[in-house]
Amino acid sequence: MNSPSDYYDTLQAVFTSAAVRAGRIVRTYEVGGFSIQLSFAGPALVDRICPGVEHLRICDSGETADFKICLWDSLSTSTSMPPPPWQDRHLRAKGEIPGLSDERIFASFQMGSDALSLMDQENSTALFWVRDAERIPWYETGSPLRYLLHLFYQRKDWQYVHGAAVGYPEAGVLLTGKGGMGKSTTALTCLFSNLGYLGDDYVLLGPGDPPTVHSLYNSAKFTADSENFFPELMPRIANPRKKPGEKSVFFLYPGFKEKLVRSSPLKAILIPRIGPNAEPRLESVSPIEGLKALAPSTLAQLPKTSSTTLRRLGDVVRKVPTYVLHLSPKPRETPPLLESLLRNLI
């Protein structure tokens, strides 16, 4: 097999060919002061990648973007892809491809989307390829390019995390823990309160004391069980003909753009717990409980994590208080409690 850098250059040429054939579409976004330029070969992937990040769009910054990603699919661009330079057995957990990675290049194959991502860590550029844009699942459209954004921001000492965030531009809270505990539902109830919305599944933590939580995606995902809580949102879901078991996906931009908050100083970490509580309440717990909620689910979903990742998350829980958020069966009772907490922490 050629070196990872050679393979990157080969695929860069494939992208160039696809862009010539299908036309180049450029969109630029900004998160936490870093500009991210997406160059698409043709329109097929635009509708699969952009809706979730459209609230972060800025004017095109030309060649000066901090991170440049080239994206294409083979089917719509009629561009053939060379065979994978690894044998099947080389795929590891989280799609890592050790034989195709070195100090400069990091390669991963994301099953589900069947997406190949190659990150050039020296030059802050990346390639993203799928065979067929139509095969990208809706949950990926809701939170696209997870691996690449994680890899880029990790090198800046920022941390991509699994969690929801709500609040105001002056103060926000991170809701974290494993799936099914009420993160998304709690975040969505904030649409019907004074609180703003930063994300329901993945957000970015920037450095500082307190750290800053940044919105990455304007999407919200909810299960069939949660649909009853939000009947007014059902006409707006993006995937009304979803497959059995698939979550409903809903984009807050542009319909609820006034509710979107770009970033907030992080004031607390909340661990939602569903229970037979008469009303929602907060229980202060030790920082290690916050780390136990935040770290395993974040690390399990991201490639190329290490002791540095855990140390970075440890630094976050040391700086802000952690609470268990005991939820009541009525989700819309939660936002007033969070508003009260934030008023006390500002």
């Binding site: 892809m81 590891r92 099953m111 589900g112 065979r131 395993p296 979903q301």
Partner: peptide
């Protein structure tokens, strides 16, 4: 409880070029 989240390589097919296909 993180077993479900850990994205282990699922059983998959490959296309005619050898690329994994869920």
């Amino acid at each position: 409880d993180m077993q479900d989240l850990l994205l282990l390589d699922p059983i998959h097919e490959v296309d005619e070029m050898g690329w994994p296909m869920t």
